[in-house]
Nucleic acid binder design. Structure first.
Lengths: 128, 128
DNA sequence: CAGAATCCAGCTCGATACTG
DNA sequence: CAGTATCGAGCTGGATTCTG
């Protein structure tokens, strides 16, 4: 707890750490960042790439990401308009950090699943 | 994309990576894990420590964390009962990973805030 | 193609009250 | 102290429809 914005109680509405956490907590945001890691992608392409997004959530999330400076938007004046989204350098550093989490998930999911089974089994016995 | 559970499209309901992400996305879960990092803490103590939790969310989140094997619960048979929650080794590895995110937040929040200002300023001009 | 706007079903979460 | 149970307001997000 030696940082300017103290953890773990950095969640007061006034504290901006919360803002970042909320962003990462957003399923679609993480997915979008990942999809843009290799190259710029168009709106509709993203829609197909990210299975299950509604166009509302896609548009909404892209707008937030752009506002946060994590993604940049470029409208190319073709007919009809083409819009390319790409990840910014800032977004890339965040993405790298999030990757740490994904790796944790992949390497520890077995333990989590096992713990769940044991827990549920314990409840079974009590119920009986 | 060389992992067993492919990213970024690891979000299908069947894919357990999602489960972990959802856990991390949970504000209270992160806060609880942080609060337990030093030593075991009792329920009511947690309630005071974590400003703004309802006892419902605290109880609910603790239960999930316990089920996932991230937190362990020990009931001490005093009168009235005392219950101590502590972080497990598994929970500690997750917490360490999440810390990376918190550090990112602290070191980059300035850039994010600045980007937001610029974005909002841009909208202003259009509206005018 | 790239969105904006509207409508509403469902789930989350806080508040409140009660229990062992 | 350590919870559980219930209820309702509010927000989230999907489906649908429409525009430049």
């Amino acid at each position: 707890m030696k940082t300017a914005c103290p953890r773990p109680n950095a969640y007061a509405a006034t504290c901006p750490t919360r803002l970042v956490l909320d962003r990462v907590a957003d399923k679609w945001a993480v997915l979008i960042l990942g999809s843009l890691s290799e190259e710029p992608v168009r709106f509709d392409e993203l829609r197909r790439l990210i299975e299950g997004v509604s166009q509302k959530m896609l548009s909404q999330t892209l707008k937030s990401l752009e506002r946060d400076g994590l993604v940049s938007r470029e409208a190319i004046p073709t007919v009809p308009v083409t819009v390319e989204y790409s990840i910014t350098p800032l977004g890339r550093t965040l993405s790298a950090t999030v990757d740490g989490l994904l790796i944790w998930a992949e390497t520890h999911i077995d333990q989590v699943l096992k713990a769940q089974k044991q827990y549920d089994a314990g409840l079974q016995r009590k119920a009986a």
